[in-house]
Design a protein around this nucleic acid. Structure first.
Length: 467
RNA sequence: GGUGGGUUGGCCGAGAGGCGAGGCAACGGACUGCAAAUCCGUUUACACGGGUUCAAAUCCCGUACCCACCUCCA
């Protein structure tokens, strides 16, 4: 069965039909590294990480390219504001982004090209566009080079807009533009901007316009036609519209399918620095386990708005505890099994535009069966069930027994703690054997007060640190 | 002004003409020394007003409210 994805260009579900058989090339817009990532940014990473894992499990080779915009107005402004070089700001935030990938279990992209590393490719593309009559250097001496939207009749095809209905682009003063909606491919160096933020071109020194880097880098690493271009819905216009126009006008086919994830809102509006409602990944993972945050983000459909709330996050953590509890218990009983195959229901849900909510419903049903098998002590069936559950969790990047989660949860902790807890549990077991339930309960309460939860099972007491 | 998306039970969150996704919470039962975990069961829905249809949460028309984009944004 083919994988079907919602293409935001045509606004319909389309079969994934790769350019190269057995291989899927994906480009998704990374971050402008002007600040550390918030949980809205990381939602996008989780969405594309799940897509990638599903494609891999479906037998495809995947090349995934995510850009890092390390030079633009905002990065320069941050450098100025913080009194240090713009590139120091960019690099620091790029590292924070990588830390966020890692803490949430997102596989690193195949490659993460930086805009500053691809100026020659951009210059080449600008030359091509000028030659074809779709771009022009500003005649006001600014050194800007603009894309000529009137020269490209399809302009607006991605976001379904007509040029005449659009408001003017404000990425540069309109003086040098032929049409106010023309956008900058290249921005001339301005007095007062650091010399380090400019590169020589046939049109004078300057720096990249935002949109061009993605067109140039996608072509370099994925070719003139590739399978999927993704990013946040807020990038659809103007960023992706402009990328599409540039690349097509330069004679390329560009992306076959456009995938846009919906925003993560807080307090009724999009999480964004300009609104001041951001929650940094590094902060949230202090309150809730990273795997629980990932579950929260993966549990809703990628095209639905997530209205963030602490309550919903806590609830997701509880829901995940049930899943993890099953995996832990089943692993104890079976001695552990490797991930096997996902169920047909799970596969059908994932094939249907990455319907993670339906996939999770399937997973919960399989876990319900597994819990029954656990009660019946049916070893063989239980092994099969656990293998399947682990496979499904792996697709979502939520297998608690896989990297990077191992060791971060369960009854681990340091040896001193374990030895103390086990001594108390031994005392309690003796009290229970003596039917001294008052003492047994007191020990359990003591442990609970210290944040250690004890459960009695047929095999003896299990414990884990909660929180 | 233009372009899209949305409003589902106490909460989260799917579905897209007939059959009550799933989870969390609550309640009852089984299990347990008591719990916890687990299993079984129960309760509360489709923004509002019209219309189409044998049948509408789902299709059509209208209204209200919300979100995103048209300015940097995942």
């Amino acid at each position: 069965m083919p994988i079907r994805l919602h293409d935001s260009a045509t606004r319909e579900l389309r079969d994934l039909d790769p350019v190269v058989r057995g291989h899927v090339g994906i480009y998704h817009c990374g971050l402008t590294v002007q600040g550390p990532p918030h949980i809205g940014h990381i939602r996008k990473e989780v969405v594309f990480d799940v897509l990638r894992r599903w494609l891999l499990r479906s037998g495809y080779d995947v090349t995934i390219i995510a850009n890092v915009t390390d030079i633009d107005d905002k990065v320069l402004a941050k450098g100025e504001e913080q009194g240090r070089p713009w590139y120091a700001v960019a690099y620091e935030n790029e590292r924070a982004l990588h830390a966020a990938y890692e803490v949430l279990g997102c596989l690193p992209p195949t490659y993460e090209p930086r805009a500053t590393g691809h100026v020659p490719e951009m210059i080449e593309m600008i030359g091509e566009l000028i030659e074809r009559g779709h771009a022009y250097p500003a005649d006001d001496g600014s050194g800007d080079v603009y894309f000529d939207v009137r020269s490209w009749p399809a302009y607006g095809e991605l976001s379904n807009q007509r040029i005449d209905d659009m408001q003017p682009a404000e990425d540069a003063p309109p003086e040098g533009k032929r049409d106010p909606r023309d956008f900058a491919l290249w921005k001339g160096h301005k007095a007062g901007e650091p010399e380090s933020a400019s590169w020589p071109t046939p049109w004078g020194r300057g720096r990249p316009g935002w949109h061009l880097e993605c067109s140039a880098m996608a072509a370099k690493y994925l070719g003139h036609e590739f399978d999927i271009h993704g990013g946040g819905l807020d990038l659809r216009f103007p960023h992706h519209e402009n990328e599409l126009a540039q690349s097509r006008a330069a004679g390329q086919q560009f992306a076959r399918i456009w995938m846009h994830n919906a925003m993560l809102n807080l307090g009724g509006s999009k999480m964004a620095k300009s609104v001041g409602n951001t929650l940094m990944v590094s902060e949230v993972v202090k309150r809730v386990r990273p795997i629980a945050l990932r579950y929260y983000l993966a549990a809703s459909h990628y095209r639905s708005i997530v209205e963030f709330s602490e309550e919903a996050l806590a609830e997701a953590a509880t829901a995940f505890d049930r899943i993890e509890g099953y995996v832990t218990r089943a692993t104890e009983v079976t001695g552990g099994v490797e991930p096997g195959d996902v169920t047909p229901g799970f596969a059908a849900a994932m094939d249907d535009d990455l319907s993670t909510p339906a996939a999770l419903a399937e997973l919960q049903a399989v876990i319900g069966e597994g819990n029954k098998l656990l009660a019946d002590a049916d070893g063989e069936a239980l092994r099969g069930n656990l293998a399947s559950v682990r496979a499904m969790l792996d697709v979502l990047g939520l297998d608690p027994l896989a990297a990077p989660w191992t060791g971060s949860s369960g009854s681990g902790g340091d040896a001193a703690l374990a030895s103390l807890v086990e001594a108390l549990i031994e005392q309690r077991a003796q009290a229970r054997a003596d039917k001294d339930f008052a003492t047994a309960d007191r020990v359990r309460d003591q442990l609970a007060a210290a944040g250690v939860e004890v459960e009695d099972t047929a095999q003896g007491a299990r414990w884990q640190v909660k929180g």
